[in-house]
Amino acid sequence: MIQFQNESITVFQSALFQTTCTVVVTKDLVIVVDPNWLPHEIEEIKEHVARVKGDRDVYLLFTHGDFDHIIGYHAFPDAKVIGSKGLQEHPEKAQKLELIQQFYNEYYIEPPYEVGFPEIDYVIHKDGQQLKFGETTLTFYLAQGHTHDGLFTLVEPLGLWVAGDYLSDFELPFIYYSAKAYEATLRKAEKVLLNHKVSVLVPGHGKTTAEHAEIKRRIQLSQDYLGRLIAAVVDEDVERQKALEKEMPFPSNFTKECHKDNVEIVRKEYVGS
């Protein structure tokens, strides 16, 4: 379904995990970010792109390589692909493809497209790197912590910030890579908000916002959670750790495992094995 829309930006939201896909239309190009999940949802995105593209080129932007974010890669076979160097050199490409196939198999879904890992045409390898297409400028920042290959993308002059799996309105940090890197990414997020005129923020899961105060609240929400988690792990306070697990919205086996991963990564980085 369409969650947010203005004259240049359309944000689709999947029924699964409130995962977003952003379609950006400028004078110069069309950008499709993380097309996902279910076949009919991706088809809706494709139909929208066909209606708005005109004679513009289409670019696929992947915020990171988690399987739910790359599942629609082959739905746009003629698009040029933008992603981080970490995504290009991802060490677990085969595992990500297995997860996609497993998802289709578990729900008896015939894959509507070939299952494949994105091949990158425009590789982003450093903070502040830019791609310019006519009057449209994309500015990138490496965003590690949730994964090793994440990207923040600013689309100017629209003032759009595509944050990937950070700065959700409801989802607390899931640390798959590094808690220390996650903290650094949140500090980077503060600088992005300070140094760019952000008018719209789209997280990978959850609601789009056009409110500056709400973006600051989301940064602080993640910082507060991480600070309390690190303190609870360093202090070996099991009760506080359990309380933090209960703060996870939509409690499930999935969130239970994510909390367990969070604790293990924090312990490894801040306490030692």
Rank of each mutant, 00 (worst) to 15 (best):
P118E: 08
P118N: 01
P118A: 06
P118D: 06
P118K: 00
E119Y: 11
E119A: 12
I120N: 05
D121I: 02
D121M: 02
Y122N: 12
V123N: 03
V123T: 04
V123Q: 02
I124A: 07
I124P: 05
I124F: 10
K126L: 14
D127T: 01
D127E: 00
D127C: 00
G128W: 01
Q129A: 10
Q129Y: 01
Q129S: 10
Q129H: 05
Q129V: 08
Q130C: 11
Q130R: 15
Q130G: 10
L131H: 06
F133T: 01
F133Q: 04
F133E: 05
F133V: 09
G134H: 03
G134W: 03
E135D: 15
E135G: 14
T136S: 08
T137P: 00
T137D: 07
T137Y: 04
L138I: 05
L138G: 00
L138D: 01
L138W: 05
T139C: 00
F140A: 03
F140N: 00
F140W: 02
Y141L: 08
Y141F: 09
Y141N: 09
Y141I: 08
L142D: 04
L142M: 04
A143C: 08
A143R: 06
Q144N: 13
G145D: 05
G145Q: 04
G145E: 07
G145C: 00
H146K: 15
T147E: 13
T147I: 13
T147K: 12
T147G: 12
T147V: 15
H148P: 12
H148L: 13
H148V: 08
H148T: 11
H148Q: 15
D149K: 05
D149F: 12
D149S: 07
G150K: 05
L151M: 08
L151A: 06
F152G: 04
F152E: 09
T153Y: 09
T153K: 12
T153P: 10
T153F: 09
T153I: 13
L154A: 12
L154K: 09
L154W: 04
L154G: 10
V155E: 07
V155S: 06
V155A: 09
E156H: 11
P157N: 02
P157F: 02
P157D: 05
